[in-house]
């Protein structure tokens, strides 16, 4: 099974870093004031980032 696909809508992201802190497998990192996907293969699809993002900026697509 391939890793889930993460989409970050850059126009919506305000850089609060909630997604980075609550990701259990450290898939995301901050690039200045923008959350970015750095380790997509580590994603387990727990949806924590999508659930907690206050800005509708992350979507997790599973197969």
């Amino acid at each position: 099974m391939s890793s889930p696909r993460l989409e970050i809508i850059e126009r919506y992201c305000k850089g609060c870093s909630i997604c980075v802190e609550f990701c259990p497998t450290h898939v995301l990192e901050m690039d200045g004031f923008l959350a970015t996907v750095v380790r997509p293969e580590a994603c387990i699809g727990c949806m924590q980032c999508e659930l907690r993002c206050p800005d509708f900026a992350i979507k997790v697509y599973k197969e």
């Binding site: 305000k14 609060c16 870093s17 206050p54 800005d55 509708f56």
Partner: peptide, 17 residues
């Protein structure tokens, strides 16, 4: 309407969702 007006990290976005 997005992005909304709330500050970075504001919990109101989480409540809206």
């Amino acid at each position: 309407k997005l992005p909304h007006i709330w500050c970075p990290g504001c919990g109101h976005g989480i409540v809206l969702k």
